[in-house]
Design a protein around this nucleic acid. Structure first.
Lengths: 169, 169
DNA sequence: TGGTCTGTAACAAATATAGTTACAGTTGGC
DNA sequence: GCCAACTGTAACTATATTTGTTACAGACCA
């Protein structure tokens, strides 16, 4: 479905900043960890800044850091900052309005897809950046996090989630 | 996120067949309602047939119809038949393995994304094709459907879900 | 046997995302 | 003030994915 890795990259970026604590990170540094171009990172940082998740400073000695504590940033905040559309789309071209099904299916589907979106948002709202950091380094403190919730994940997809298309070739 | 309308089209196609009752529909007829090419429909019907949701017959007087009653087909069945991947993807290229965050973020994200996928599947499993048909024509019987559930959908997305990109221009 | 279908291959078009180059503007240190 | 090191952003290319189209082999019924 989704051909976009924007959410994954955004979580990665913000996790780096949570990890770096208050130290501002340069787009080059972040790009190196994400393994992409620094401009891609800067574009994303602009979106994250618009949603007040990071603050950036231009000029020498500049860089970006979190706008608030990791426990105050949910994955839903991140999702909404970088993904514009819901998880499914409707028809590319509108269905035939002369067909009794075609004329009405759109609104029925809209309701269904809104339900799906809400379910996704509920899951993401229940996890914070702090939880992600805690799972990254379980030895570190952060005892009052909700990271246990993450452990309770369901079954695996049949189709393995690959980290890269290059792996497929 | 999703650039694919496959799920929406698949629900539309199967709704037409539920509407047509036992009458087999030709791919041309279906294509006319969906407003697309008949080959696109036939491709999708092949996938739906592989998942045992429809049966098709070749030759003159041929066509496709549901393989079982609409109340025995959930939206999850349809989703799994036509959408191969989960709702989010990971990085296009693997992150830097020399970075403590980069090397571990993939597995943390996988857990999160599995949770999201499960939530989506739970929603879709709770609605059947019969429910969709009921919502399409509220005057018709089908009193024992779960269609009331659909009404309880959450808030609307900020970005309206458009039926067509052409509307944007 | 001919007309009407499906199944499928091969390709073109449209769309979206990611990556790249280039450069204006901001900032801090000297 | 000037230089070096940053961000912000435009313009473009590359890549991937989905959708649409044409063409045709094979199935089936009358």
């Amino acid at each position: 479905m989704s051909t976009s890795s924007r959410f994954a990259v955004a979580v990665h970026v913000l996790t780096l900043m949570a990890w770096a604590d208050e130290e501002p990170l340069k787009s080059e540094q972040v790009a190196e960890s994400v393994n992409t171009n620094a401009v891609v990172i800067r574009r994303m940082l602009c979106e994250l800044a618009e949603s007040n998740l990071v603050v950036s400073q231009t000029g020498s000695m500049g860089g970006s850091k979190l706008a608030r504590l990791p426990e105050k940033i949910t994955l839903l905040d991140i999702y909404q900052a970088v993904e514009s559309r819901g998880v499914f789309s409707l028809h590319r071209h509108p269905p035939n309005p002369d067909c009794p099904v075609g004329v009405n299916i759109g609104s029925v589907l809209n309701d269904v897809l809104d339900e799906v979106d809400s379910a996704v948002e509920r899951v993401l709202a229940n996890m914070t950046l702090r939880d992600v950091v805690s799972r990254l380094q379980p030895c570190t403190g952060a005892t009052n996090s909700k990271s246990a919730r993450v452990t309770a994940n369901g079954k695996r997809k049949q189709v393995a989630r690959l980290q890269s298309v290059s792996v497929r070739n």
